[in-house]
């Protein structure tokens, strides 16, 4: 179980102010969606929580700053699924998933039985068991996304930050991935996902954090956050939001007039 707290967090990359004044608290057992237009700072926010960019303000994971933790310790607490599907060498799916056990392995040691079990579990949950001997660079976009997700799950960390886990997935696989992330959260993990699909975000997330121009524009349950007015301000689109169903259904109607 981990608790993530951000108080007045800011990030400056080069000369560009990417994030400022971010305040948020994330509790275990919830699926949190970070949404917002391109270039709003969503990925930077995810990277800030992993101490991958220099930050100002205070970030605490169970009371400790991520940057103050040794990398391996932090890696055991937060698993990360980076944006994009970059894979530089043609590893088999099984070897790829095995990388997730790295934070748990001493240098030059062998993969132990507990690690093997974690790898099998992760592959089973991401439904890539039958792909285990395939070259991960030759998989279809959807298969590769699942293999990379299995890699992140194999860490078995109490928190998972996934940056655009739905990119390049067809609707069926998008649902599979969101169901999986939701199940992780229901089992007690803290899951934070950067998402572009507002319908998926509204349907599965317990809470949405809308980031716009480096600041939090809204924060709360999807039904409260996703309003036509907010979508107009943040995305510059006209949208209708049906709130009568089990989850709010967002339909984008077109560009908002300037």
């Amino acid at each position: 179980m981990v608790m993530l707290t951000l108080s007045d967090v800011g990030v400056t990359l080069g000369r560009r102010r990417v994030l400022s004044g971010i305040d948020a608290q994330f509790a275990p057992g919830s699926l949190i969606g970070i949404v917002g237009p391109n270039g709003a700072g969503k990925s930077t926010l995810a990277r800030a929580m992993l101490a991958l960019v220099p930050t100002e303000g205070r970030i605490e994971i169970d009371g400790v700053a991520p940057a103050a933790l040794p990398r391996r310790e932090l890696a055991k607490r937060i698993a990360y699924l980076p944006q994009g599907q970059s894979l530089h060498w043609p590893l088999t799916v099984e070897r790829l998933v095995e990388l997730g056990r790295l934070p748990h392995l001493a240098p030059m040691s062998h993969v132990a039985a507990t690690d093997r079990h974690a790898i099998e579990r992760a592959m089973a949950r991401a439904d890539v068991l039958d792909l285990r001997h395939r070259d991960a660079t030759e998989l279809s976009g959807g298969e590769r996304a699942r293999a990379l997700l299995a890699r992140a799950l194999a860490v078995e960390a109490p928190a998972l930050i996934a940056d655009e886990p739905l990119a390049s997935l067809d609707p069926g696989h998008q649902i599979d991935v969101m169901e999986l992330l939701h199940a992780e959260a229901s089992a007690g993990a803290l899951v934070i996902a950067v998402l572009h699909d507002l319908t998926m975000a509204a349907r599965y997330c317990d809470r949405l954090l809308v980031v716009d121009a480096g600041r939090i524009a809204a924060d709360g349950p999807p039904a409260a956050v996703l309003t036509p007015a907010l979508l107009r301000t943040v995305y510059g689109v006209e949208a209708s939001v049906e709130t009568g169903g089990v989850w709010p259904a967002v339909t984008i109607l077109g560009r908002a007039p300037d």
Partner: peptide, 20 residues
């Protein structure tokens, strides 16, 4: 020593750092 660090870099720099 530490050839696994090279394996982790298969996932890119962010991916490797996030693996410790």
């Amino acid at each position: 020593w530490g050839g696994r660090d090279l394996d982790a870099l298969t996932l890119g720099e962010d991916g490797a750092q996030a693996l410790g």
